[in-house]
Design a binder for these strands. Structure first.
Lengths: 186, 186
DNA sequence: TACGTAGCCATACACCGTATGGCTATCGCT
DNA sequence: AGCGATAGCCATACGGTGTATGGCTACGTA
């Protein structure tokens, strides 16, 4: 199969994805270039294109592997308020781990498929328990997701806890309180 | 002064900013390049650098001119709920007008100075009327801004009103309701 | 043994931002 | 009037980007 002269084994999509994700974690999305990635993998840049359609497809794929790493908590017995809070915290943790990639997703929504798997499977039952009627759950989920996403972006921008990370935690908590307070219809 | 051979008059920063903003409105931030801008202005690319420090400075400047175009409503007599709603709508209108530039700001917060002028001067009195104690107003403003920004981004991504723009209006309205409901402490 | 093909690579193209340095026409000053 | 400073413009060049094109090698299968 004409394996690379410099490397022993042939490339695998997994190897490409993980190293690309590592590059993004280290230097942001703008630090990921096909040439640099190829250099790290010790391969000619064009060899990547035998395993990846193009750069945007690659980013989309590593976005999905990142989303797959979202640690989803759900304690079915607990009240919906607590579960919603846990979910918001899990979301926050993930954004803090991959801030740059997350910003990319926010401006390129097409990279992530719609409303299936991951967060949504956890969020919908929570909304059901909170008394949101079924026909409103999709949009409510969208609104809540928008709120939390905007909140985390704001935090990433340095506001809410400019100096003190403990204060950021507190502000995040009270913001979640606000959401929980606002969710039930009067 | 050795005016351009091809143009009659010398370049002005205003001309550069407005044409750059036009390019961004038409094709997004990624469609703005110094070379294209120079071509539109019928000038050598390097001539731009006598009026603009570099590309990011240029973008930062057109961000500010955009922010200056935010139509800020404020009816001091009305209740804070109504004024908050008006502000959220003004924000939404602006994001819809310059979606790409807005996304850029969200991922490059350094482009816009902090907490002075524009929105904040209007938002702070509203929060005061809503009974938010002074020492919490900054973070509360940040949280609310995060909420609304995330909401609009979500809308821009096609959710909340996928098909029907009227439905998007309705959902936005109820989301603002939710914020207003959640703002006062219990 | 012959062939298809999977994997790799070298080259090239068009684009990008911008550092460098030189040209010219105008202004203020002597 | 003469002259230096300077504002505005431009040509060239460097290092970077994504990727189209086409050719090479070595393996699996028939």
């Amino acid at each position: 199969m004409a394996v690379s002269a410099r490397r022993g084994a042939p490339l695998t999509p997994e190897e490409i994805h993980s190293t690309a994700l590592r590059l993004v974690e280290e230097g942001g999305v703008e630090a990921l270039s096909m040439r640099k990635l190829a250099a790290v993998l010790d391969v000619n840049p064009m060899s990547l294109y035998h395993h990846v359609a193009n750069k945007t497809a690659l980013i989309s794929q590593i976005c999905q592997t990142m989303a797959g790493r979202l640690a989803l908590p759900d304690k079915p017995g607990s009240p919906w308020q607590e579960r919603l809070r846990d979910l918001a915290h899990a979301y926050r943790r993930m954004v803090h781990r991959y801030p740059s990639l997350w910003a990319y997703i926010h401006t390129h929504p097409e990279t992530v498929a719609d409303h299936q798997g991951g967060i949504w499977d956890v969020l919908f039952p929570i909304l059901a328990d909170a008394g949101v009627p079924e026909e409103e759950r999709t949009t409510t989920a969208d609104v809540l997701h928008g709120f939390v996403a905007g909140l985390v972006v704001t935090e990433r921008q340095g506001h809410l806890g400019r100096d003190d990370p403990a204060q950021a935690d507190r502000v995040y908590e009270t913001a979640i309180d606000m959401i929980i307070r606002g969710l039930p219809r009067p």
